[in-house]
Simulated scan of single mutants.
Amino acid sequence: MLSPNELALLEAIRDSGSLSRAAARLGKAPSSVSHAARQLEERFDALLFDRRRYRLQLTPAGQLLADEAGRLMQDVNRLTQRVQQVASGWEDRLHIVSDEILEFELMAPLIQAFDKLDSGVALRFTHEVLGGTWEALREGRADLIVGATNEPQTMPNLQWAELGAMEWLFAVSPNHPLAKMKTPLRQDQIQQHRAVVVADTARAAGARGYGRVGGQATLAVPSMRAKILAQRDGLGVGWVPRYRAASLLARGELVEKATETPREPNLLYLAWRGDHEGRALQWWLERLRQPQMAAALMRGVDGFR
């Protein structure tokens, strides 16, 4: 490992191409710089400087040493910052997993506000679906989960809070056979047609789906957007968040149908592990639990306008 002074010497010679200019840049006498250069070559037992030409240049070995030493110096500086960051209560990184039912766009204002803290905490956002969201927290792949559905699961040191309730409607394409049937639709009528579901991302637990009648054929898709589009195109039927289908309903590209068994609103949750509460996690919990932000998450974004 090079010292900062040795790295500065290599960079000064590389950039200036002259012993005298390198000395002036470093604020040292040329003889002192020349002596330091020879000591460096003796230390590595390699020719680092090409003195045969008019311009003093680094040899390939010297260039390699300068490049790699510079990279290592940056790594050391970054490591020092990270150590100081963690020592002051900030996490090194924060992994936030949201259920796919919530759009990432809603997090953008919070990320911008968090960046202004200049905490150094690296953020990572990923999506999961249904049981996969809880599983990410249980298996340590998430520090915070947002928008998790179903009741909080049993796991060590689990902390949770209700985020809000999401409303649903049963939607079909205007060209689908159910669109012309009298309402409320019966379960046996719905069962005759394929349901579109968002695939559960849980790895260990059995996959689940919402709004599916027992024995009903299914089309599993990777996202809520894909589900809404599939239902718009008549590939199946099912329940969708009311806010996300608003513009399609207004344009008549989807039709809302009443059912004999309405779907209750889903409670969505925030959850985290109580034994890992750093300053970044606390900041995010405080912002996400504000009523205005929670309401925005429940309303969401209509991506079909």
Rank of each mutant, 00 (worst) to 15 (best):
T149M: 02
A179T: 10
A205I: 07
G274L: 12
Y243E: 06
H176R: 09
A142F: 04
A199L: 06
S16Y: 08
T218P: 12
L235E: 10
Q63K: 01
E105D: 12
G238I: 10
L249Q: 08
L158R: 09
V240H: 03
V221P: 00
E135R: 01
A230I: 07
Q39N: 14
A245P: 11
R212Q: 12
L40N: 02
L267K: 02
A61M: 00
G140Q: 07
G214Q: 08
P291G: 05
L235T: 06
R25A: 10
A246I: 11
R93G: 04
E11P: 12
Q153M: 08
T133C: 06
A246M: 12
P30F: 10
D302P: 00
I13D: 05
L254P: 07
D188N: 11
G215A: 06
Q63I: 00
A113W: 03
R186Q: 10
A245C: 07
G89W: 04
L123K: 07
A165S: 05
I228Q: 02
R43A: 03
A66Q: 04
P174T: 13
A8W: 10
Y269H: 01
A8Q: 14
V198S: 08
L130R: 11
W160H: 15
A246H: 13
R55C: 07
T133K: 08
L130W: 14
V83M: 08
I145F: 07
H176W: 12
A12D: 14
R225P: 03
I13G: 01
Q216S: 09
A179K: 08
H276A: 15
Q57M: 13
Y210Q: 06
A271T: 14
K180N: 11
G27W: 13
L65K: 00
K28Q: 15
T149Q: 04
V196K: 04
A8P: 06
I190L: 13
V121T: 15
S20A: 14
R21M: 14
T259H: 03
L248R: 01
A36V: 05
G211C: 04
L123P: 08
V86H: 05
L288V: 08
Q74C: 07
L297I: 02
A205H: 11
E68C: 01
Q153I: 11
R38H: 14
R138A: 12
G236S: 14
T149A: 02
A161S: 09
I190A: 08
A23N: 05
R232W: 01
W284P: 13
D92Q: 12
